[in-house]
Amino acid sequence: MKRTIYLLSSIAALAALISFSGCGKDPLKDMTPEESRIYITNHDSQANFKSYNTFSIVDSVAVLSNRNDTAKKALTDYDKQLISSVSQAMQSRGYTLVDKAAKPDLAVALTRIDNSFTNVAWNPGWWGGVWSPGYWGYPGGWYWPSYYVVYQVNEKQTAIDVFDLKNPNADNKYVSVWNALWRGSGVWNTDNVASMVQASFDQSPYLTNK
């Protein structure tokens, strides 16, 4: 009986050892930064993307940090690359870049989000407040369709928001018609901007006026 107990306990010990000593492969260990990134895009299913002709893009990138309530605007090499890549992508989809004073149909806002230090509840599009309609010379606020989902973030991210300036809704708010959010390693790396913009537009074939 004693022997059986020894045996049972040695088998249990062996099992515990192998199970918990990381016998399973850790997928994060052999993952490149490119593989670690995810690109999330969302759009307003009511929007008619063919009805827009012109767009204007912000002249700098808003930088939000959970350590600081007030957003800063920045124009680093990364930000310049982001503005130029997104402008090119919009133009390749048939939209004409115009000055913000020329009453564009679409407003393109760019935001970098740094939540690396604590968790905050993510309010979809909360960063849009930095680029308020006032920037484009309109009163009122932005409006996000209800299926823009809330979840938690704890990392560096980059967001692109496209708003419809042509058709404010009943509350005089401007609807977010397209949104891209990049998450993962290296989303704030200048060298990755072109490919991340490319990926975001590639997965949004409806975003065109052609």
């Binding site: 997928p27 979840y151 949004s204």
Partner: peptide, 24 residues
């Protein structure tokens, strides 16, 4: 016992409740 099933899929776009998610 123990068995570890593991598969890594190349980058693809998955329609999700969050929107369209491109991921490996």
């Amino acid at each position: 016992g123990f068995q570890d099933f593991n598969e890594k899929l190349p980058r693809a776009v998955y329609p999700d409740k969050l929107g369209d998610v491109s991921a490996v």
